[in-house]
């Protein structure tokens, strides 16, 4: 059984931590870094509640060992809000994109990675993009609307920042 000293950047802050090889990334995030916004749902790589962004890619943090994240840059739900809510958080609020809220952190992180790659997705592309995230409450209609809201708002912010 090996233990490892690793360094990773989470939401802009660098952390140097000791981890057992078998520790899963989601456990390190929740239990050692105390960032409990990332949820554990199925524990079997199915539901996507544990989705975080590692080096720009949305992944299931229950299916990666923490030691593999040595040197990585990670974004979790806690990193989204700045002075106010992130447009995705605002979208889920305004469009009622959640009921129980359990899947929401993972859903938002998947959506964030999707919008970074494709700022103006069609409804079909949004549904495809979040197809690794399960929601058992909403039937997804409101989640799609929330992501569309966020996409429009992010595009608006972009054009304000860079005048044509």
């Amino acid at each position: 059984m090996s233990t490892h000293q690793i360094t990773l950047t989470v939401n802009g802050a660098s952390h140097s931590v000791q981890t057992e090889a078998r520790t899963l990334l989601v456990h390190l995030i929740r239990e050692q870094l105390n960032l409990t916004g990332t949820h554990i749902g199925c524990d079997t790589s199915s539901c996507g509640a544990c989705t975080v962004i590692v080096n720009g890619r949305a992944i299931k943090s229950c299916t990666m060992f923490a030691v593999q994240a040595d040197g990585a840059t990670i974004e979790t739900i806690e990193g989204l809000a700045g002075a106010g809510l992130h447009p995705l958080q605002e979208g889920f609020w305004e469009k009622h994109g959640l009921q129980c809220g359990y899947c929401t952190p993972g859903m938002i992180m998947s959506a964030k990675a999707l919008l970074a790659q494709n700022p103006n997705p069609s409804e079909e592309e949004i549904r495809y993009g979040i197809s690794g995230n399960l929601c058992r409450c909403t039937g997804y209609v409101k989640i799609v609307e929330a992501i569309q809201y966020a996409a429009a708002k992010l595009r608006e912010q972009q054009t304000q920042e860079v005048p044509a």
Partner: peptide, 9 residues
């Protein structure tokens, strides 16, 4: 194959 999140790994 699987889903988009799994395909990233």
């Amino acid at each position: 194959i699987a889903d988009p999140l799994v395909r990233n790994r």
